[in-house]
C-alpha cells in the first residue's frame, strides 16, 4: 500500500498540490484523473521521489520514501514520466537492460537476460531490439520505455500519461498490458490518465484531483456519473452503460 499523508507542493505563491492525504490500495490499477493543472503529475512525481515535497510524508509498504535509500526503493517502485527526451543513444535492448540496474548495478546475470527478453516480448519489441531509440517512431519509443519499467519488476509501477504518442490500437494494448501485469503478476499500477473512458474501463480504483486537492476517490461506478464528472471538468456529460462498461460522452 502507498500511504500519502498531508503532502503539499507550491511554486512561489501558486499551490500545485494542497495537503493531499490518500491511500492507494495494493494490487490492481489505480487511475488519477482530473482537469489540466490539477496537480496529477506533480503528485505522481512526489510519490516516486522525483520531486521533493514541501510538507508531508509518503510511505511505500511502510517505508518512508524520504528516508529510504534510492536503490532500495528502485526495487519496489518504478515510474515513467511523460516526455522522455533522451540525448544518450541507446539501443532498445540497452535501455530495457537498464531496468535491471537496481539489481545488478550494470553486471547482468543470465536471469537478468530472461527478464530483458520477456519484457521485450511482452511489448512486441523483439524486431526493434537492436535499433537505436532515435531511429524509432514515438509510439515504439514509448513502448520501449514501458518495457524498461516492466523489466525493473517492481511491486508498484507508476505511469504519467503512458498513452501519449500512442494510436488507438497501441493505447488499448498498452492498457490491456497494464491490466494483465496487475492481474497476472500481482503488480500495483498507478496511472495518470487524460481519457476518462480508459480510466472507466480499466481501473479498479479512481482518484480525482482538482485544484491541487484530492477531490474524490472510489470505484469507477462511484465516480463515472454525469453529475460528478460535470463537477470535475465543468462541462456537460452523459454516461452510457455499454455492455457493462461506463462510457461517457462529452462532445456537447
Amino acid at each position: 500500500m502507498i500511504e500519502i499523508r498531508d503532502i503539499s507542493k507550491s511554486y512561489g505563491s501558486s499551490v500545485v498540490v494542497d495537503n493531499v492525504t490518500a491511500a492507494l490500495p495494493k494490487g490492481g490499477i489505480t487511475s488519477i484523473i482530473g482537469p489540466n493543472g490539477a496537480g496529477k503529475s506533480t503528485l505522481l512525481s512526489m510519490i516516486a521521489r522525483l520531486m521533493p515535497m514541501d510538507r508531508g510524508t509518503v510511505l511505500v509498504d511502510g517505508l518512508d520514501i524520504a528516508r529510504t535509500s534510492g536503490d532500495v526503493l528502485a526495487k519496489r517502485l518504478s515510474i515513467l514520466r511523460q516526455d522522455n527526451h533522451m540525448t544518450a543513444r541507446l539501443t532498445v535492448r540497452d535501455l530495457v537492460a537498464f531496468g535491471r540496474y537496481p539489481y545488478n548495478k550494470g553486471r547482468p546475470t543470465p536471469q537478468d537476460q530472461d527478464h530483458i527478453n520477456q519484457a521485450l516480448a511482452y511489448l512486441g519489441l523483439e524486431e526493434f531490439a537492436e535499433r537505436f531509440l532515435d531511429e524509432l517512431s514515438g509510439g515504439q519509443r514509448q513502448r520501449a520505455f514501458v518495457a524498461m519499467v516492466l523489466c525493473q519488476d517492481t511491486d508498484y509501477m507508476l505511469f504519467d500519461e503512458p498513452l501519449n504518442n500512442l494510436d488507438i490500437r497501441h493505447a488499448v494494448s498498452m492498457m490491456k498490458l497494464l491490466r494483465n501485469a496487475a492481474r497476472d503478476f500481482g503488480k500495483t499500477v498507478v496511472v495518470v490518465l487524460h481519457d476518462v473512458n480508459f480510466a472507466s474501463c480499466y481501473s479498479d480504483h479512481i482518484i480525482v484531483m482538482r485544484d491541487g486537492k484530492l477531490f474524490l476517490q472510489g470505484k469507477p461506478r462511484e465516480i463515472i456519473r454525469p453529475e460528478t464528472l460535470e463537477d470535475i471538468y465543468g462541462c456537460p456529460f452523459e454516461v452510457h452503460d455499454l455492455g457493462g462498461d461506463l462510457i461517457s460522452v462529452y462532445y456537447g
Partner: peptide, 21 residues
C-alpha cells in the same frame, strides 16, 4: 563507473527511478 554515467546520461528522473544518486 561507466554504467552510472550512462544512467546519468538518461536524465535525473531516470537515474532516480533506477535508484542512482
Amino acid at each position: 563507473a561507466a554504467d552510472r554515467f550512462t544512467v546519468a546520461g538518461m536524465g535525473e528522473d531516470f537515474s532516480t527511478n533506477l535508484g542512482l544518486n
